[in-house]
């Protein structure tokens, strides 16, 4: 087997074959599994808050949230500094024009959980809100740029909304015409749509005529909105299938489905325009739930004085 002499197999041969068949780096230091440092696995813990005598290090220890209040003090200090600068400028008699502003484009405040991580303390909603309001107050001052470094620690970058969207390329059907699909939901309806290029603007919904399915004007306008926005009212033949819900839900679903399918026919700039016209967002509004102690979502039971 494998060109070895079975009868004269010595211990050396055994060692050699083992090292060949089972090359084990287990004995090698470099082959040991790499674990991440423990701080990545265990949540961060606060350093010791008081010494052996029980005396706390920080003067804010007895607030219960020393790190948070420390941060609040720091922010308040910055606010005062920034206001002082403005006062100094006014005393000198100079104008407030020409001061560079903080650039907050493409960033938003970090969430409450992120702040909790920084501060390593559990926070309440109103505490988070208070902190953010303080930072916003700093930003309103003319010399806010002095505090920019501090403030930017609490802002996170946001990307373009459409950066993660994948637009499908056009496909050709058996007649050689380009088509694209789209599907969407609204309320409790769903719709799927096929836009075929080189058509005359005919719309068919579940095999029925457009006018019969949507009796009300607003629903027809809703469906034609993306096509009118793109100036392509008579370019496509549209076949829709919808299910569930009523006319508003169905027309909203069809509109979103048409907008999604339209992206393939149109350049990226225009897709951004469609998004800002509100055509590419799924409408999250649904029927409000009924609450206990009330008749319906909002309606209350008859109020009896006694």
């Amino acid at each position: 087997m494998m060109g070895e002499d079975a009868e004269n197999f010595s211990q050396e041969d055994i060692d050699r074959s083992i090292s060949y068949l089972l090359p084990s780096g287990l004995f090698e230091k470099k082959a040991r599994p790499m674990l991440r440092p423990p701080k990545d696995y265990y949540p961060p813990q606060k350093a010791a808050q008081f010494d052996n005598d029980g005396r706390p290090f920080s003067f804010l220890f007895y607030t219960g949230k020393p790190n948070y209040y420390n941060l609040m003090h720091e922010a308040a200090d910055w606010l005062n500094k920034v206001i002082q600068q403005e006062d100094a400028l006014i005393q000198r008699g100079e104008s407030l024009d020409g001061i560079p502003q903080v650039n907050l484009a493409r960033s938003e405040w970090i969430g409450k959980l992120a702040l909790e991580k920084i501060v390593i303390e559990k926070l309440k909603d109103n505490e988070y809100e208070r902190f953010i309001n303080l930072l916003e107050r700093i930003l309103k001052q003319p010399f806010a740029i002095e505090a920019q470094e501090f403030i930017m620690k609490f802002r996170q970058k946001i990307e373009a909304v459409l950066s993660k969207e994948v637009i499908e390329p056009l496909q050709k059907d058996e007649n050689g015409r380009f088509y694209s699909r789209g599907s969407a939901r609204r309320k409790s309806s769903n719709a799927s749509v096929i836009l075929t290029d080189g058509g005359s603007g005919k719309i068919t919904i579940n095999g029925e005529e457009f006018l019969r399915t949507f009796y009300q004007l607003c629903h027809r306008e809703d469906i034609l909105f993306p096509l009118h926005f793109a100036n392509m009212l008579d370019r496509f033949d549209i076949e829709c299938t919808t299910e569930g819900g009523g006319p508003s839900g169905q027309s909203g679903a069809i509109r979103l489905a048409i907008s999604k399918a339209l992206r393939s026919f149109v350049d990226e700039e225009f897709v951004e325009k469609m998004r800002q016209a509100g055509l590419l967002t799924k409408d999250p509004r649904i029927k409000e739930r009924k609450k206990p102690g009330q008749k319906r979502a909002r309606k209350k039971f008859t109020w009896k004085k006694r």
């Binding site: 457009f210 009212l233 008579d234």
Partner: peptide
């Protein structure tokens, strides 16, 4: 022309 086309599609020639 664009307006007429829109009316055409909205009314579906009815």
């Amino acid at each position: 022309e664009a307006g007429k086309l829109y009316l055409k599609k909205l009314s579906d020639m009815n």
